[in-house]
Design a protein around this nucleic acid. Structure first.
Length: 478
DNA sequence: TCAAATGATTTTGT
DNA sequence: ACAAAATCATTTGA
């Protein structure tokens, strides 16, 4: 990617900092060299000037040497020739003197290290990127961090998108990004180290011809590192972007929606229709449903939210479904009730509602519909005439089965919800037109006049005194 | 290919 | 914070 460009940039700017020094030297040299025009590449002049004028000769001498130094820095260093020349310069008798002069000049110009650059404070932007990469599992400890990151990502995106097939795909891509990131990072580090040692060597060598304090070297190293870390930041940034794109593509549940399994839908529907008067599962109930359906709790919440609204919007459309599930749970209810009654009879012979004993065999019918008819027949009586007060009484008695007052043996399954279901069945068949007669209790679906559920305020328990006797508060499910 | 169904998200109200 | 309502984006079945 932009690696080579960045390195080039870095080298450029580094070169420019070195140019600065060269320029300073040039300006220093420029003063004393005025008027001279010695071209580079010349062998060292004879140690001493020709004629007597001592000052003049020495001046020229120094000028020559300086110029040669300049030429050396200007020229490429890799020629073997240059080595010889450098050596010659280093061994020149004027060298120590020149060196000390340079030191002096340098001190006067106060070039050394101004401000020392304050141990660069941690860049907040970089920190943010680092944190994010760590959270996404791109940076940080080797393998295994990926799954944690995926989980974190899932949690961040609303808790949905559970461990599924898509996740493995996502993880594979994330690993790919991770690998690229790490190889690039390694490359940068290597390049940075190489470059640093190269510059250090260069400076060390130069320090023989000009004064370079260790602080200066340090500063130079700092510059290099800063340059490279800015490159690293670019890498981190683009990695973050890549992860973001990946995440939005793979973890956006809306895109990758999957219908729940039939079984899950069944379970949810069963719960919904058997708690029709108050279809607000408690937190525990949600958890249990989630476990049963192998979906998340928030998915359960979503499902109930959708279901409530859609049911309410078009009750007619759901009628059939409601009947189906009502019948289904009614069968279960019958099972449970039968078991419970038998159980309780064993314990206390005076258990009420003995008329509610149903035998399993009575429900061995193949279609839900026929079950339903059977049930409604049961409750409406053979004549088909359905009297509201009777059913009301019946439910009262049924509720007493599960009421607080009931001290007998434990009633097996959730009789409350079963009552709900049964009531629904009845309302579907005979009792429905009677609902207009003013008894809201038998209006289907537990919806009140305002279109709200009868006790939507508290999802679990709390019986409101205004409710009819048949009102059910469920959520003691099991 | 299309409409219906459906799971998820966003907006709004409390 | 939670639920209703509206909406979106996808799946499914004809």
């Amino acid at each position: 990617m932009s690696f080579s460009i960045c390195v080039a940039q870095c080298t450029d700017s580094l070169a420019s900092t070195m140019d600065d020094q060269a320029r300073i030297m040039q300006s220093i040299g420029g003063v004393s060299l005025a008027g001279h025009s010695v071209q580079g590449g010349m062998p060292l002049p004879p140690p001493h000037g020709h004629d007597g004028t001592d000052g003049d000769g020495r001046k020229q001498d120094i000028g020559d040497i300086l110029h040669q130094i300049m030429t050396i820095t200007d020229q490429s260093l890799d020629e073997a020739q240059a080595k010889n020349r450098k050596h010659g310069l280093n061994c020149h008798r004027m060298k120590p003197a020149l060196f000390s002069v340079l030191c002096e000049i340098k001190e006067k110009t106060g070039l050394s290290i101004r401000g020392a650059q304050e141990e660069d404070p941690p860049d907040p932007q970089l920190m943010r990127l680092d944190n994010m990469l760590l959270a996404e599992g791109v940076a940080g400890p080797e393998k295994g961090g990926g799954s944690a990151a995926a989980a974190a990502a899932a949690a961040a995106s609303g808790g949905a998108a559970d461990n599924s097939i898509e996740h493995s795909d996502y993880r594979a891509k994330l690993t790919q990004i991770r690998q690229i990131y790490h190889t690039e990072l390694e490359k940068y580090e290597q390049a940075c180290n190489e470059f640093t040692t190269h510059v250090m060597n260069l400076l060390r060598e130069q320090s023989r011809t000009r004064p370079i304090s260790p602080k200066e070297i340090e500063r130079m190293v700092g510059i290099i590192h800063r340059k490279f870390s800015s490159i690293q930041m670019q890498l981190k940034q683009s990695t973050c972007e890549a992860v973001m794109i990946l995440r939005s593509r793979f973890l956006d549940a809306r895109r990758k929606r999957r219908n729940f399994s039939k079984q899950a839908t069944e379970i949810l529907n069963e719960y919904f229709y058997s708690h029709l008067s108050n279809p607000y599962p408690s937190e525990e109930a949600k958890e249990e449903l989630a476990k049963k359906c192998s979906i998340t709790v928030s998915q359960v919440s979503n499902w109930f939210g959708n279901k409530r609204i859609r049911y309410k919007k078009n009750i007619g459309k759901f009628q059939e479904e409601a009947n189906l599930y009502a019948a289904k749970t009614a069968v279960n209810a019958a099972h449970a009730a039968a078991a419970a009654v038998q159980n309780s009879q064993a314990n206390s012979p005076t258990t009420p509602n003995s008329g509610f004993q149903m035998k399993d065999e009575e429900f061995q019918l193949d279609s839900a519909e026929s079950k339903n008819t059977l049930l409604s027949n049961m409750f409406t009586g053979s004549s088909g005439s359905f009297s509201l007060p009777n059913t009301g009484d019946m439910f009262l008695s049924m509720q007493s089965l599960n009421g607080d007052s009931y001290q007998g043996a434990q009633v097996g399954a959730n009789v409350q919800s079963q009552v709900d279901t049964l009531r629904h069945v009845i309302s579907q068949t005979a009792g429905y037109n009677d609902a207009l007669a003013g008894n809201t209790m038998y209006s289907p679906h537990g919806l009140n006049a305002n279109g709200g559920w009868q006790d939507a305020t508290t999802p679990s328990s709390v019986i409101s005194p205004t409710e009819g006797p048949g009102s059910v508060h469920s959520d003691t499910s099991n």
